[in-house]
């Protein structure tokens, strides 16, 4: 039997990996991929606690997280495509339209 805290530790490590990726990567597509890593880390936590407590609610929440992730990807990639049309670049530092 794997202790619950190992899952929490794994989830924390994956979350920090995604967070560091969001901070240090400048390719906007890779930043979106790193957000997926963070969402998956959260999902592992939900399912681990659902297994420990024998409650199904955690798995339902994972279901909703996956829904929101799908919506986020659709919108995010749409934004990336239209930004690329505008700037011919996927580097985040080239997007400074709203900068004063």
């Amino acid at each position: 039997m794997v202790p619950l805290s190992w899952y929490v530790a794994l989830s924390a490590m994956m979350f920090v990996t995604g967070l560091v990726g969001v901070l240090i990567r400048r390719n906007i597509v890779v930043v979106l991929l790193c957000i997926e890593i963070m969402l998956n880390a959260v999902n592992i936590n939900f399912v681990a606690f659902s297994d420990y407590l024998h409650l199904i609610d955690g798995q339902i929440f994972v279901f909703f997280v996956i829904t929101v992730a799908a919506a986020e990807v659709a919108i995010g990639l749409g934004i990336i495509i239209s930004l690329f049309r505008l700037r011919e670049s996927v580097n985040m530092d080239d997007y400074n339209l709203l900068k004063l």
């Binding site: 986020e72 659709a74 919108i75 990639l77 749409g78 934004i79």
Partner: peptide
């Protein structure tokens, strides 16, 4: 909303 938004954006 995501469906409509993605179409409008892209």
């Amino acid at each position: 909303i995501a469906l409509v938004g993605a179409i409008v954006m892209a």
